[in-house]
Design a binder for these strands. Sequence first.
RNA 1: GGGGGUGUAGCUCAAUUGGUUAGAGCGCCGGCCUGUCACGCCGGAGGUUGCGGGUUCAAGUCCCGUCACCCUCGCCA
Length: 630
Amino acid sequence: MKNRTHRCGDLRTEHVGETVTVCGWVDTKRDRGGVAFILLRDVAGKVQLTFSEETDSALLAQTKEARGEFVLSATGKVRAREEENRTQTMATGDIEIVVEKFEILNTAVTPAIEVRDDLKCDPELRLKHRFIDLRRRPMQAMLQARAKLVSSARATLEAEGFLDVETPVLYKRTPEGARDFIVPSRAHRGQFYALPQSPQLFKQLCMISGLDRYFQIARCFRDEDKRADRQPEFTQIDIEMSFPTMDDVIELFEKVVAAIFDGIRRDERFKDQSWPVLSAGDVKPPFERMTYEQAMRDYSIDRPDLRSRDLKLTELNEWSAGCSFNAFKGVAEKKGLIKGLRCPGMAGEFSTGQLKNLERDAKGMGATGLANLKVTETGLDGGIAKFIPEPEQKAMIEAFGAKPGDLLLICAHEKHKVVHAVMHNMRLLIADKLGLSDPHKFAICWVVDFPLFEYREEDEKLFASHHPFTLPQDVQRVHELAEISRAGKEPHPVARMLRGGVEIEEVIALRNNQYDLVCNGIEIAGGSIRMHRTDYQADVFELIGISKEEAEKKFGFLMSALAHGAPPHGGIASGVDRLLMLLLGLDNIADVIAFPKSATGRDLMIDTPNDVEPALLEELGVRMVAKPEK
RNA sequence: GGGGGUGUAGCUCAAUUGGUUAGAGCGCCGGCCUGUCACGCCGGAGGUUGCGGGUUCAAGUCCCGUCACCCUCGCCA
C-alpha cells in the first residue's frame, strides 16, 4: 500500500495534474460497461475515481471486485472534468482521479444500515450498528462540532486562568438526589464506590486547596429513567472560581458561550450543515436576566422559552375568589392556583375533540380539568361559559386582555405544581401552533433569585432547591431560623420552626445565590455561589433535617475542609450534550453522543449491562436475588 | 413505577370484514451498457410476520402474556 498523499474530500482543481494516492471506503459504484466510476469516501468527503477501457481495460475489470464499503487505496492523476460532466453536488465535483493502480485493503459485508446522509430508519438499528451510523456525514459533522464546542470552551477558560483538574470517577454514594450507580470493591469486600452525579464537592475542595480557578470537562452519572434529553452518563463543562461575585461567574460564562457559538460558526467544515447555530442571529452578551418569580408568574416554569415571550399566562385567583363558578371559587378559597392562557386568534383552531385531547393531557398531569372558552364580540362562549354571568365574563376578558376570536384555556387546582405543569405545557403547545418555536432562533436569558428551599407538604419537609451547598441570600435570617429549629423538640425542623412562631411562607420566600442559563426553554447551565463557612453550612443542614451526626458521616470531609480556611467560591456547570442539541437543532440527546445508550439505559452495540460470573460476585461479596414477584 | 406508540425481506413500508403461494420500492447477487453522479435496462435470491401461548375450519390480522425500541407522566438534590 502506498502512502496516502491527500484526503478524498480535499482535492480541488488546484491539484489537477498531480499524481495522488487516496484511501477510503467505496461509497457508490457506477459501472457503465466501458467506463466505471467509484465514489471513494473518507473523513473529508468524497471523490470520483474513474476507470475506462481506453486507459486500462485490465484495471477496469478489477473494479468488479470492489463493492460497497470496501476499503481501497487508489493512486492516479487528478484530472479536470469536462464541462458537461461537472457536478455541484460534491465539493470535488470539478475533478476526478484517473486511477492507475488501486488496492483493496479490506472487504466488507453488506451493512444493516446504509451509509447515506438522509438515512431514515429505526433508531434501534442505528444504535446496534453505531460504527456504521457514524460513517454518515451528519454524524461525523456532529462529532466535529462537539469537539469544537469543547475546545472553544477549553481555550476560553485557559485564557482566563482556569486549571483543568481531573476528579475521581470512583466516588461515594450520596443518598440525596438522583440515584447513584454503585461499583463494588474487590479489595473492600461488601463495600461500594458510587459514580459521581457531578464533581460538585471536589471542585469546591479545589478552591479550598487554593487552585483559584478550576474547570473540567467532566463525565457525570445518574441512574434515573431516561428521556429524549437524558442519558445515564453525560458530560458537563464544570467550572469553579474563588472570590467571585455572581456577576463574575455570569460574565465569565457568557464569554464561554459566545466563544462556543463563534467557534462552530467560523469553522469551514460546517458550512454545508443546516444547523441553527450557523444561521441564527448573534447571541451577544450580556444576556438578559429574569427572576424566578417572574418566570413562574408569566410562564409557570423556571426555564422559560422566550422565543414566545409575549405569550404570557394570566393568574386568575382574584377573579376566581369572587366568581360564580364553584370549581374555581373553591380552589381560590383553598389557596390553590388558577391560571389561564390567552391563545390569540385560536378560537376556531381546535375542534371539540382536540380540546378534549388537551384536557386529557392535562388530566394526565394531575389536573381535574382544563376549561376552554371562546371570546366572541358579545362575551364568552363554549365550555364553562354558561356558568359565568355576563359581568364576570367581562372582568375575565379584561383580566386576559383578550379579543374576539381568542381561545382561553384555564386550569385550577389546589396544588400549584399541577397548574404550573399543565399551563407550561399548554403554552408550549400553543407557541408551537403559532409558529413561535423556530429552532433557528435563540432566546437566551439568566434566571436568578431562586428559592432557597422547596417545601414538600406531604411530610412537612424542606429540601435544598438547588443543592445544599448554595449560599442563601440572607445568611443572617437563615441562622436565626436554624437557631429556632435547634431549640425545638418536635421531630422535624419545619414543625420546630412553626412552633417557634415562623410562618412557612417566609421560609419558602427565602432566596439563594443560584443562577441558571436558559435558552429556548432548555437549561444549558446552572450554578451558584457556595457556602464557604461551616456555620452557614451547618445552618442549612439543620433546616433540611440533616443532623450533625449525619452531616459528619456524609459530608465530614467538606465540613472539615470548610473549617480550614475555605475561600468564598462559586461556579457553574453546563451540559455539553444539551447545549450541542440546541445548537444543532436536534431533539434527541443520543444524536449528539458518539456511543449513547437506549431509553432503558442499554448499550445495544456492545450489549451491556450484562451478567457476570457467579465466582466474581462471590469475590465481591455480592449475592443475586430473584426479582420479587408482583 | 404509570400511560401511549411501534415491531412483516438487509432497510422503508403494503397486505380489504380473519380467507389462495405475504407484496412493492430501495439495497444485495448475476448479466448488459464508454461519462455516470439517486446511472439505466434485463434477470435472480431473500420471510420463524419480535418471542410464547390461546380462540378458530383458517391468524400478519382477534385475545392473553412477554421482549425490544421510541415518546410521555412520575423521577432526575
